[in-house]
Design a binder for these strands. Structure first.
Ligand SMILES: [Zn+2]
Ligand SMILES: [Zn+2]
Ligand SMILES: [Zn+2]
Ligand SMILES: [Zn+2]
Lengths: 152, 152
DNA sequence: GCAAATTCGTTACGCTATAACGTCTCTTAG
DNA sequence: CTAAGAGACGTTATAGCGTAACGAATTTGC
């Protein structure tokens, strides 16, 4: 993601927050920027280390609070099977997302497929469950790493 | 699960292991039994504490190695969003499973739906990914807790 | 028996996440 | 303007999850 694109994404995040009466504070904004600039899902303690380089010693809560805020507003998602965080470019729209993750290089792509969401909801309802949140992640090899695998 | 049912499950696990040339050692067997007897997904450190009551101080690796073995043979599954382990009564058959989990009481049910597995695989393949492992979990409220929620 | 492989105990450590408390700032009603 | 309340943040401590590395003991295959 280019710096331009990052700026655009940050501006859009700012708009979303303002619209919702939420405050995109410096810490939150900076954490989002770090996630946006990373080309892969970012771990909480990596974010913490980077933020501490800039602001001196902090603690985990500082990061986790920022992450909780960004998650609540769908500005980021958590990849559960990686314990890592990725930016979402579709925060305006409430949505469930899925992920495909490369076991080899960590490349991660967000998917938004309404059919699979509906399917899982239906499976839950068939058992009497009221489904509120879904975690759907596929782990395997990305196109680039598949090639490497074949040659090795 | 009654003691009788636990014994039957353990006997079946023993058969599966023998058939595969794997050893269901005392530690592994006991860990499986603890998981079978629990009526809810069990956490690694809870298992560790119980095992240490019986055998004196051990360390996390003892439990995690047993869990890894049981996972490899599909005698148990890991519920990723709970960091907990549940027994599987269908170890003979290679299968992917999904889970519905109650946020309120922790009740967890295993689902085996081939269609949703195929769907997610297809979504991955459309992006060039070779999907090897899937995590599909739905969190919400179980039938019992839905009632409680409505009355509260 | 004996060598190789598997299993297990043990110590130590790293990563993930939250509890609890006090301070500071920002908003807003009076 | 100012006091009160809410929200955000810094700080310390701690709980929970998981693995690396090494050596001893056991089992297996020859
Ligand atoms: Zn998204
Ligand atoms: Zn890859
Ligand atoms: Zn199963
Ligand atoms: Zn429930």
């Amino acid at each position: 993601m280019t710096s331009q694109q990052v700026e655009i994404a940050l501006a859009r995040a700012q708009r979303v927050c303002t619209l919702r009466g939420a405050r995109l504070t410096p810490v939150r904004r900076r954490v989002l920027e770090l996630i946006l600039r990373a080309d892969q899902p970012t771990k909480a303690y990596v974010l913490l280390a980077k933020l501490e380089q800039e602001r001196g010693k902090l603690g985990p809560p500082t990061i986790y609070r920022a992450l909780d805020f960004l998650l609540a507003h769908q500005l980021i998602h958590k990849v559960e099977t990686s314990n890592a965080f990725v930016a979402c470019d579709d925060a305006e729209r409430a949505h469930q997302s899925q992920f495909v993750i490369c076991e080899d290089c960590g490349a991660t792509e967000e998917i938004q497929d309404d059919d699979i969401v509906a399917s899982l909801r239906r499976l839950g309802e068939m058992r009497g469950f009221a489904v509120e949140r879904q975690v759907i992640e596929a782990r395997g090899l990305c196109p680039a790493c598949r090639v490497g695998q074949r040659q090795a």
